[in-house]
Design a protein around this nucleic acid. Structure first.
Lengths: 237, 237
DNA sequence: AGTGGCGAAATTGCATGCAATCAATTATAC
DNA sequence: GTATAATTGATTGCATGCAATTTCGCCACT
């Protein structure tokens, strides 16, 4: 078996599935996540579910309370602001590093992703948000720093969660345009412009998002998880 | 039992104990950490050990390989450089925020810690390193951003581990002096000076440390863990 | 009717057992 | 004598069982 890390462990799949479900608003903030029910759904025991939940808790996507169980995290507006501010600063660092590594291959990757975003422009909103987040993650990957990548991932996911909580619809339309501009600036090697654009991009997203505070929304139940669970049961990625 | 989170769970204690042991060079990089042996030592089952190891793996202090078990992480020089570079940039952010929150109470905390460092100046080297790391963590705490705190913690720990790998003795002496200067700059509200000092401080540490590459050193065995394990068994923090 | 306590159900915390996997060593064939 | 195959030992991967804790409904009592 030379395929190195071919089959990631089931815990990874489950975490990913849950993460996607959370970011795509299938699991809404505040929902309880009992180990038993989840285990049953995913066809595994509580052990693996617990590991996954713990991992997600470390990422800040779920809250894990003493003997009370896990629930999808419900970040406060204050935390959200802190997160977005930190994000702009962290992504500044990403830009600086990406500029240093700039190459045609790298540019191609970025444009490939942008194409995906365009293709999904009229898909459902949660999916747009996910793709937009992945753009930032791709940038971080191209920065060449594993740690930086991890941080951008985490912050990106949490911001995504926040957006799903506080943002109104149609907040992503102009996002694609802004991504395109950033890629252009990068391709020209213009770090300052790229940084500025990125900063503008992020604060724009934050400003569009972080003022509506309407509560509630329909709490979907675990049944909506079914498609995600099925993929894992069948061994899919 | 109103004391909120009085008794952290045993997993937390064990992680902390292991973390200290690693940072204080009781567990050297490369050492194997079998679940069974550790469980026996700490008087708990493999379950808790495994959780702790996973947590430390997430922090980058231990490596967790497929079916091969856990070992204390052995960061490469390259990773180390990346880490230190990122650290300087992240701590820039910390300084900016601390300046914004500056207050007498806050200053007092910093000076309190500095006093501890001075007091331990002639204690063992690993302890000096730990205290120096904690200075940076304290700063992050005072920045008021929980996420930033977590990142500084993680990077700080990993840098500490790196130092224990690559640094020669006596690399901390001037550290205290530099910490003092940073506090002074902060107290004057001079953000630029503080940032500059911090940057100088960190690159100085890195430069002093990251060039020696002597291999080996005596691999202590798990017996050295005993004092740490005992504390946990007896329910201590 | 409102409040306090009490018991049952739900849910996590932790330990342990069995199977799967990997490393190393010995045995066997060429 | 070397290389390859098989076996053994150690260690993790995962499931399950029992105990501890919390929560919530229920009834009595003020």
């Amino acid at each position: 078996m030379k395929a190195a890390d071919k089959a990631k462990h089931r815990t990874d799949m489950i975490s990913s599935a849950l993460r996607s479900a959370i970011l795509e608003r299938v699991l809404m903030p505040g929902m309880k996540l009992p180990e038993d029910s989840l285990g049953e759904r995913f066809g595994v025991s509580r052990t693996l579910i617990r590991q996954s939940l713990e991992r997600l808790a470390a990422e800040g996507l779920v809250e894990l309370r003493r003997n009370k169980g896990a629930m999808v995290a419900k970040p406060s507006l204050e935390e959200a602001r802190d997160l977005f501010e930190l994000r702009t600063q962290i992504e500044d660092l990403v830009i600086s590093r990406v500029i240093k590594n700039m190459s045609p291959a790298l540019l191609a990757e970025l444009e490939g992703h942008l194409a995906k975003e365009v293709a999904a422009e009229h898909a459902s909103e949660p999916i747009s948000i996910r793709l937009a987040t992945e753009f930032h993650i791709l940038l971080a990957k191209l920065s060449g720093s594993p740690v930086l990548l991890r941080y951008v991932e985490e912050i990106g996911y949490r911001c995504g969660l926040t957006l799903s909580l506080y943002a109104r619809p149609h907040s992503t339309d102009c996002g694609i345009q802004e991504h395109r501009q950033i890629i252009e600036a990068l391709s020209k090697g213009d770090a300052d412009a790229a940084r500025k654009l990125m900063r503008h991009h992020l604060t724009a997203v934050a400003d569009r998002a972080l003022f509506t505070t309407e509560e509630g929304g329909p709490l979907l139940y675990l049944d909506a998880l079914e498609p995600y669970a099925k993929k894992v049961r069948d061994g899919g990625a």
